[in-house]
Design a protein around this nucleic acid. Structure first.
Length: 455
RNA sequence: GUCCCGUUCGUCUAGCCCGGCCUAGGACACUGGGUUUUCAUCCCAGCAACAGGGGUUCGAAUCCCCUACGGGAUGCCA
């Protein structure tokens, strides 16, 4: 069997969204699974709408997700150039081939591809005008996900615009031929286009690649109907990068949109996904993006990280939030993170969650204070705790001694330690929930704790 | 309008190709309990689906047909 060559062929007209990311991911997974080649080809034939910023954003997001390409921008390859805007000569020679074969004609400055079959005119309800149609033989689309699909084209279509640029259908097919693409993995929205493409492959006398049309990703019904678009909330990959999601978690979640390992497991490392990935296991029906589930997967990844790695991801988040200096203490950072790691689902929550470990300028939840002070004994408890804790020497400030300190206090007043804990926690952190209480005090340190209890 | 694709818990899915093991499994979410001296994590339990109708068959989520609904295409966008 021929070695697999797949391509992801985005058009840099906007940001990289979930749907494109999944198409890229599935192509990449298939290439890695089969030991084939993953080509990145930039379809920038629409000069009006392409921007360099969009291209940059796209490459950045691809790299962030770890989708490395074997051929394409920055990677080289024997089938270049990989920007369609630089392949004009190639398209021109393929065009001549069709012209010689008598499969084209010109109309209003544009060049059309001519279908074979009986011609007739008919009123078209969609276009609301009389159009020329063709009774062409249906083409057979052999799709690895959907099985055989038969579809007939019935209108000639433009392959070169009046402005001299070739169109998507034409360049897409020409490049797939010229680049030796063996498998076309793309969204289901292209299924109806595929009959055009196969007509072209046949006109060129080229072998038709294998197809795999992926089910679409639909909008959350609370936002609207139809396929997810780049304007929808949660649609942009960029957003997850900015929100400090782990790329591996996002990649894992996106892989689960339409594909499943079929063994009831969902959190899989990328090696396992590559190993198990099969196009024929892909779902036929569309999926809906679920942010909560992605957050859950992210949480699972976060919890599994060694604290050193966790710190590596967390440090830039905390420095960006102004809580930590670039070269702030690594050991202190790790002690703090060890307490926070299993408490939060996304790193974006981290600055708010642990601010009080780094600064005295943290927010206080006044509603929580009202609750704690219902009996009006907040200050009393606080000062009791302060006196007791102040008796602990600096070099004896640890969880075990803090424990006995509170135990003694409890005995003395015939109360539970719990009588002081929330009060102290609030005084020290401004909230009533957070990491383990005693270790938290230990890490924050004696002087800071005592000072905060005095306010 | 026409053509094409699809339809299992609220959501993602397993099962469907090769009918019986399916009183339909898992996960997220949600609800309730438990563990935790705090807060989380965690554990347990509960909720909840084969779109509808016909057929084929001893037997259908699984095969066939129809209907409904959803999606896509129908562009000198990709």
């Amino acid at each position: 069997m021929k070695p697999v060559r797949v391509r992801f062929a985005p058009s840099p007209t906007g940001f990289f969204h979930i749907g494109s990311a999944r198409t890229a991911l599935f192509n990449w997974l298939y290439a890695r699974h089969t030991g084939g080649t993953f080509v990145l080809r930039i379809e920038d034939t629409d000069r009006e709408r392409n921007t360099p910023e969009a291209l940059e954003g796209l490459l950045r997001s691809m790299r962030w997700l770890g989708l490395d390409w074997d051929e394409g921008p920055g990677a080289g390859g024997e089938f270049g150039p990989y920007f369609q805007s630089e392949r004009g000569d190639i398209y021109q020679s393929y065009l001549e081939q069709l012209q010689k074969a008598g499969r084209t004609y010109e109309k209003e400055g544009a060049i059309y591809f001519k279908l074979e079959g009986e011609r007739y005119t008919e009123y078209d309800d969609y276009l609301q005008t009389e159009v020329e149609k063709v009774r062409a033989e249906p083409v057979l689309i052999r799709d690895l996900i959907r099985g055989d699909v038969s579809r007939a084209e019935n209108r000639d279509f433009v392959i070169y615009r009046a402005n001299g640029d070739p169109t998507f259908h034409f360049v897409n097919v020409v490049d797939d031929i010229a680049m030796g693409i063996t498998h076309v993995i793309r969204g289901e929205d292209h299924l109806s286009n595929t009959s055009k493409h196969i007509e072209l492959f046949q006109a060129f006398g080229a072998p038709v690649p294998e197809y795999a049309h992926l089910p679409l990703i639909l909008k959350d019904p609370s936002i609207g109907k139809g396929k997810m678009s780049k304007r929808d909330r949660g649609a942009l990959i960029d957003e997850y990068q900015e929100r400090h999601f782990l790329p591996a978690a996002v990649r894992n979640y996106v892989a689960l949109l339409g594909w499943s390992p079929k063994d009831d497991r969902e959190v899989l490392d990328v090696g396992e996904i590559i190993e198990k990935f099969e196009l024929s296991d892909i779902q036929k029906s569309p999926a809906r993006f679920d942010e909560k589930k992605m957050a859950y997967i992210n949480f699972e990844y976060l919890k599994a990280l060694p604290v050193e790695t966790y710190a590596w991801f967390a440090r830039p988040v905390l420095t960006a939030a102004g809580l930590m200096a670039e070269e702030g203490s690594e050991s202190y950072l790790q002690r703090v993170l060890a307490l926070c790691q299993e408490k939060i689902t996304s790193l974006e929550e981290l600055p708010k969650f642990c601010a009080y470990f780094f600064t005295d300028q943290f927010e206080r939840d006044s509603a929580a204070y009202e609750k704690l002070n219902k009996k009006g004994d907040f200050q009393v408890r606080l000062s009791e705790a302060r006196t007791a804790l102040a008796a602990i020497a600096a070099d004896e400030w640890n969880t075990a001694n803090l424990e006995s300190c509170f135990a003694a206090l409890a005995e003395q007043h015939s109360l539970k330690q719990h009588a002081w804990w929330p009060v102290v926690r609030y005084a020290v952190s401004g909230v009533t929930s957070g990491p383990d209480f005693l270790p938290m005090l230990e890490v924050i340190g004696r002087d800071v704790v005592i000072a905060r209890l005095s306010v």
